[in-house]
Design a protein around this nucleic acid. Sequence first.
DNA 1: CGAAACCCTGTAGCGGCTACAAGGTCAACC
DNA 2: GGTTGACCTTGTAGCCGCTACAGGGTTTCG
Lengths: 143, 143
Amino acid sequence: MRIGELAHQAGVDVQTVRYYEREGLLASPSRTQSGYRAYGPAHLERLNFVRHCRSLDMPLAEIKRLIDLSSDARVSCEQVDALVRTHLERVQTKRKALEALEAQLQALSAQCASGHRVADCGILEELIHAAHGEACACHPHAE
Amino acid sequence: MRIGELAHQAGVDVQTVRYYEREGLLASPSRTQSGYRAYGPAHLERLNFVRHCRSLDMPLAEIKRLIDLSSDARVSCEQVDALVRTHLERVQTKRKALEALEAQLQALSAQCASGHRVADCGILEELIHAAHGEACACHPHAE
DNA sequence: CGAAACCCTGTAGCGGCTACAAGGTCAACC
DNA sequence: GGTTGACCTTGTAGCCGCTACAGGGTTTCG
């Protein structure tokens, strides 16, 4: 299997495959006489594994650690679980931040009664006013 | 006010201030004889405005547009509102994606009964199995 | 034989910073 | 007046996970 076929099977870009190889997530395959990469089914399996982890938004460094852990059958599974749970916490934190963000943006949009000019715009006023200080917790007040 | 003072007041890094100037979000201030940047209160206000928008996760390009819009009092406020609403939609989409992600990671972590070796690990099995295909919608199956 | 589709390497770009190097300036203190 | 240290200047490179070139070689098909 050449790189285009592999990439197509896994639903990724050819460049991404080469990138994963460079980053050590995918073993370097053997080469044909003309220097083309020649992949086997094991490479596809690994690539699919990486893509699945990426679809769970794991950073490549963590996926790499996961691969290293899984290649050693003696390792306790708790390390794998800890990695997943740490990642889960990251995702939770981000989700909560986005929820708060959403509420703020919604409130902001509600400021705007239609048909007027920016000079009287509630949104901009709100943004500039909030930027002034106390009202908003988003930027730390230096003392 | 010199750059360190300005940055401190706004709670940002000095480098970030220079970066905003390069990107056209902050007007180039006048300089002292020795070439130091000299800021006034208007610069601080603008910087706070940018930071507030950033805390709402708006990309710099959009903040720039917002500044351009707000500097022209004749512009209809609807454009400002549209910008905010578009951004709100982006945030909502992302938040929903993270919610789905969270559920998947939680399910994954539940696979792991403690105290065993990775050879029998539910998580890895699940990840590799899911990577194999049908089970998971995350990677498109090529035909 | 020639065109199109594939492959190769190397490099640069995205966003929003952050960090470093190598120097100049300024205020305080001995 | 010399020296320390905190500040400032510019320019450049790094982070992440790709993506998109440029400039070549190879394979495949008609």
